[in-house]
Design a protein around this nucleic acid. Structure first.
Lengths: 290, 290
DNA sequence: AGATCTATCTGACTACAGTCAGATATCATG
DNA sequence: CATGATATCTGACTGTAGTCAGATAGATCT
């Protein structure tokens, strides 16, 4: 009853019955689950029929029939795509948006009810984030983004907060060399965010300089996504972007209070070099030739 | 994307697709899911037809057909119960045990595979325990047990380990007044274990003395089950057992390094009293008249 | 003993999910 | 412009889950 496998299986049992309850609640609106799922996929912004079919794993015949039934209910409208008349685009009608909103309300209510039952919601949410990230690990997407975008700023905020917790003397962004956003945008550099189903779970910056090298900055992995080798994926992505941009030498600084970072660098071909800047926080410096 | 409700919903999405995959894996053995579930329920020790029906939430007609199909396959045998010939008992045949073992192997493999993907399995398992406990909170059962039973000893071990972590000077059981097992057995006292679907998640001891009062000892709630008000439930159970045993005065000792315990006692009618023993660890003493 | 209750079983039925083959319209290519 | 590829749709079909109304046999109560 206490070995790891039993614990995973206990979790599976608990979650199976909870998910069943969640599914059946969607049946309260007099529509088969399949149709409800399609409606929700459309409401969440999917408009390409093939994309929805793929996302929900449906047969084309079944998909067609589900669309027809939603159309008959007056909830969706379909139209051939302009660039390819074989493909169809779907969108919600006014009634469809109302119906979608009702499903959203139902989901929100359920989530809220679950949280309300629990007096330590923070711990529960952290656990849920962790598990959701683990389950969707192969679906964590890395995307280049503007370092000023909402997702990027969220990641940076979490990163600074974590440094504040981990450095014994705290962390004050204004004392560190906060890189200029344009140094982390093409063509000088790049900023990459890892997203797991809407939640940003990591980032890394590639910052161009005028000294013959570029710097890796702001490597962060959310606590919920640790153990998934996401740091390595982010570094790989940053390095290949650097190669694309014709960069041949990379440098970075870090702090010995972040041992997992140092270990990552050492195990991926970086070698330690002497201090190359006067930032007060770092005490370890690395370099990698591409 | 970052508010609590979205996080719960993200978890739901992640888990829904994972559970789907888990279910379909059970279809690999050429048997509908319903029949597989019944077979597994029997394999896990359920033998009363009505009990299985209730557990799986099945209609009596459907249940009967599923049993028939398993019987036709030669996997189970049914017999009327001796004390009530309307009720039926089910058990696995030799072939049924083989088939059940195959399902078990499948489940174990899947759980193992999931863990193996993850490099920080401890954190993942802790998160799974937490969520499983939260989802099954209304199914946490409190049972009186012998303090020498496997479950009780597991709880006590965890309890001592936690004291070791929380007390700055550590914790050595041999220095504390380890209560005699027979003082926590009826009629002198009692020992209650909380179990959430096979996993012990809390305990409390009621220890009889010869000084006109009984003591509450070893109140412990597993980290995974905190926030579910289980401490309160355990204390309530211990107090009502005390009343049954004719005990009119309860005492307990605790330590200010466990603030949540002190808070629980204060909010449930206990009042602080002067030290009443010479145990080196406690520094807070309470009493409650029933 | 008769009336009533209970657990299981059987037959008849429905809804839903899903599969497959082929029809149709459109696109891409030589 | 013929050919093959592609996206969707339609019709015909299957298997599973699930419901409901009795039927049956055994328990329980008066």
């Amino acid at each position: 009853m206490l070995d790891p496998i039993s614990r995973v299986r206990r979790f599976n049992r608990a979650v199976t019955s909870a998910v069943g309850a969640l599914d059946t609640s969607f049946l309260g609106r007099g529509r088969p689950l399949g149709a409800a799922r399609v409606l929700n996929a459309i409401g969440h912004g999917r408009s390409d029929v093939a994309d929805i079919r793929d996302y929900l794993g449906l047969d084309s015949g079944l998909m067609s029939r589900l669309l027809r039934s939603l159309e008959d209910e007056g909830l969706i409208e379909t139209a051939a795509r302009e660039d390819d008349a074989r493909r169809r685009m779907v969108k919600l009608t006014r009634a469809g948006r109302r119906e979608f909103a009702a499903y959203e309300a139902l989901s929100n209510e359920q989530a809220e009810g679950f949280l309300a039952q629990h007096s330590q919601a923070d711990a529960l949410l952290a656990a849920m984030d962790l598990i959701a990230s683990a389950l969707t690990r192969e679906r964590i997407a890395l995307d280049e983004m503007d370092p000023r975008s909402e997702q990027a700023r969220y990641c940076l905020g979490e990163y600074y907060a974590e440094l504040g917790r981990r450095f014994s003397q705290g962390f004050d962004v204004s004392l560190s060399r906060d890189p200029d956003a344009k140094d982390m945008r093409r063509p000088r550099g790049s900023f990459i965010v890892a997203t797991s189903d809407t939640l940003p779970v990591g980032c890394v910056g590639l910052k161009g300089t005028d000294h013959g090298y570029a710097e890796i900055k702001r490597l962060w992995v959310a606590p919920a996504a640790r153990g998934l080798r996401l740091g390595r994926r982010l570094m790989d992505a940053a390095e290949s972007t650097a190669r694309e941009l014709g960069i041949t030498l990379l440098r970075l600084d870090t702090n010995s209070a972040l041992p997992e970072a140092g270990q990552l660098y050492r195990s991926t071909g970086w070698r330690e070099i002497p201090r190359f800047n006067d930032d007060p926080y770092p005490d370890l410096f690395f370099e990698k030739r591409l």
